[in-house]
Design a protein around this nucleic acid. Structure first.
Lengths: 226, 226
DNA sequence: CGCTTAATTGATCAGGGTCAATCGTGGTGG
DNA sequence: CCACCACGATTGACCCTGATCAATTAAGCG
């Protein structure tokens, strides 16, 4: 019903080597990574796969999601530059990850990181921090999914991206309406209708389908009930 | 609308001392804990509080939840014996915790644990493991909240508790219908109606309001679409 | 035994889903 | 350069699940 065809083109080409000039504080992981590029719409890994590596986003947008057996999809999060994803409990993936846009990632082998961690307690602490960040987000997302209306959900979504955007009043959406719907626990039609309603109310302006101008931040925050 | 009056009776009495004979593998935290008892319906901590301690459940049931400004509530999880909860990013609580029943908890001071962790990398690793468990659960919960029907939600809920129960076909519910509703993103009425429907269909038998006998596990699993 | 609070049940309503048609838009090829 | 195509997005009509409002019923508990 809500499932999405996976194009899965693109052989991901791996460039073994260091991380390059990415600004990322004093990070002891730097040595253990491999940079990989993925085209848009690629599956990075799927639920049940071996989880022997995890990733950090350098550029692009990644979605991590879970599926029900009949194809219903829930997107847990979108990850952008700087985010770490793909840490898992045990050996098997608890969710799947796909590229929303063309992406550059760093891939870390768990074995190597474990070895690093055994020597350097700060590495484990660093991972704990990212796990906690993901956890905090997931909890906020539960509240959104369980207790917010469609309009509230979309307002929260737009403000989340405004926070991540360089120009806070302009949001570039890397994802389709279907992605947004599956992130917010709605249908594509409801997302579209709510966008239109926001535009009619003068809260936003849609420039094409992928760019949103937030005209009344305060009003949006009010709708979002923050 | 869905908010719940907090009784908050019970002065929690603290017994400083070791953890006692609780079976809990080789856990280096043992030394750093303080045992505390809480009565039913107590607030353990609230969103925004200082998060200088975290807890482990020895007995009883704890709910952790988030609120919207208008009182709507989402319960993220119920914690039972063995679960660790109350680890937070930063200094402020991201959610609140309350006792569903009378509870015995162990309380760990973060400062002390940090000192332990600095010496013993296994402590941080242990905490990471619990964060990841919580994360895995939160993700599953997002899927449930965003993409499942009322009947599916309740079936999943019952099977979750069956898994945790000693006698897998008998589930004792420590919480009210309101708690269940706020956990599943439903209303109390829908929870009640769905229970009744399950009973009419012969899937369960309700003994009083707090005990559920699962008569047809296979059928329940089918409803839950697992 | 009566009081209070929780749970069930019924009637009605509405938010959002479903189904279907139409509109854009960007890419392709004549 | 433009016509056509394909796919994503929008819009409309209608429906259904679950929410709301309200009235009973059951269950603890002093």
């Amino acid at each position: 019903m809500t499932a999405q065809m996976m194009v899965n083109t693109a052989g991901a080409r791996a460039y073994t080597g260091s991380l390059g000039g990415m600004a990322e504080a004093a990070e002891p992981l730097r040595a253990a990574g491999t940079v990989i590029r993925f085209a848009q719409g690629c599956e990075i890994f799927a639920e049940g796969d071996d989880s022997d590596v995890f990733y950090k986003v350098l550029s692009g947008v990644v979605r991590v999601c879970k599926f029900l057996s009949d194809g219903r999809r829930q997107i847990e999060a979108f990850h952008i530059a700087g985010d770490i994803f793909g840490m898992d409990l045990g050996d098997a993936r608890g969710l799947s990850a796909e590229t929303v846009s063309e992406c550059t990632l760093v891939c870390y082998r768990r074995r190597q990181v474990d070895m690093l961690a055994a020597k350097d307690e700060a590495v484990t602490r660093h991972l704990l921090h990212f796990a906690m960040e993901n956890l905090a987000h997931a909890r906020g997302h539960c509240l959104l999914l369980g207790r917010r209306s469609a309009a509230e959900k979309l307002a929260v979504f737009l403000l989340e991206w405004a926070d991540r955007s360089t120009e806070p009043a302009i949001v570039h959406l890397a994802m389709t309406r279907q992605d947004i719907a599956d992130y917010l626990g709605l249908t594509i039609e409801t997302v579209s209708r709510t966008f239109s309603q926001f535009e009619r109310d003068g809260l936003i302006a849609l420039v094409g389908t992928r760019e949103v101008h937030l005209k009344k931040m305060a009003a949006l925050e009010h709708v979002a009930a923050r």
